[in-house]
């Protein structure tokens, strides 16, 4: 198969996360080839976000192994994952509300005049200009990027969050429900960004409830149910019915009325 020739960028073995008695994620074996775009689908509470949080160092797994870019990794913090090359857009819109757009796009990796570690002096001008470039590249229009995030619509906020991760050279981009809170136009914008990532060969994991979107954008679908991975199918070899059956665990007859379509 084609994907076997390609380098594996991310692999998990027996990845498990328990919160007290809740088995949020259990024994997940997952692989992603370089350049590949995949979706993770599943019902609410299936463990999708939990899986992402383990891979991005937001939480530390109860057990299991994560290999990234050929190495066994042990991310203790999101900073570790970021350093390794994983950029994530979190479901709860991880933006600093009282800062403006350039500050958010560059948060944690600010441009400076010269390096004095954390005491480096900020090069606001450079960040302002680069932010305009980044936003232009992703086709996002924000009238005034000097206003703070809490004065922006959900769509604008999400677009900033996404250009933030897409704007930096990274080895893997992960998006948790990137269009869940967006309108039609904004969703199109985000999908355009995802396509451009594909063209640039940047691998992507996307969690989505929108099966139309999933079928349009990715080549492989991983299905989670009750904390476990219950299936992995290539988009070209499946249809909505099969995915819905996998999601719900009910063999037949769910189809059209399911909310996932």
């Amino acid at each position: 198969m084609n994907s076997e020739e390609k380098k594996i960028i991310l692999k998990t073995e027996g990845l498990t996360k328990h919160y007290g008695g809740v088995k949020a994620l259990h024994d997940a074996d997952f692989t992603l080839a370089d350049g590949e775009h995949v979706a993770i689908v599943g019902d609410n509470g299936a463990g999708k976000s939990t899986f992402i949080r383990q891979v991005t160092g937001v939480e530390i797994p109860t057990s299991g192994k994560i290999y990234f870019d050929g190495n066994l990794v042990n991310f203790k913090t999101p900073a570790d994952a970021k350093k390794a090359g994983i950029e994530a857009v979190y479901q709860n819109l991880a933006l600093a509300d009282d800062l403006d757009v350039p500050s958010n796009i560059f948060l944690g990796q600010e441009e400076t005049y010269f390096n004095l570690g954390p005491f480096s002096f900020l090069n606001e001008n450079k960040m302002f200009k680069q932010s305009i470039d980044v936003l232009a590249k992703t086709g996002i229009k924000i009238p005034d990027i000097k206003i703070t995030m809490n004065n922006m619509s959900g769509g604008q906020r999400q677009c900033v969050a996404i250009s933030r991760s897409a704007g930096f050279a990274s080895k893997l981009i992960i998006m948790d429900e990137p269009t869940a809170a967006l309108g039609v136009q904004e969703t199109k914008q985000v999908e355009k960004i995802i396509r451009s990532l594909k063209e640039n060969g940047v691998p992507l994991i996307m969690i989505s409830h929108n099966l139309r979107q999933v079928f349009n954008l990715v080549e492989k679908i991983w299905v989670f149910r009750q904390g476990q991975i219950v299936g992995c199918v290539e988009t070209s070899k499946t249809d909505g019915n099969e995915i819905v059956s996998l999601i719900t665990g009910v063999k037949q007859g769910v189809g059209e009325e399911a909310s996932f379509i």
């Binding site: 991005t56 937001v58 913090t77 999101p78 900073a79 970021k82 350093k83 994530a88 979190y90 709860n92 991880a94 933006l95 600093a96 509300d97 009282d98 800062l99 500050s103 948060l107 944690g108 990796q109 600010e110 400076t112 004095l116 954390p118 005491f119 480096s120 002096f121 900020l122």
Partner: peptide, 22 residues
Amino acid sequence: TKIGKWIYAIGGNPGAARAAGI
């Protein structure tokens, strides 16, 4: 300075600051 920016970021949303690697 960077730290100054981070201090404001932490107050606005500590989760976001953490996710940004701070």
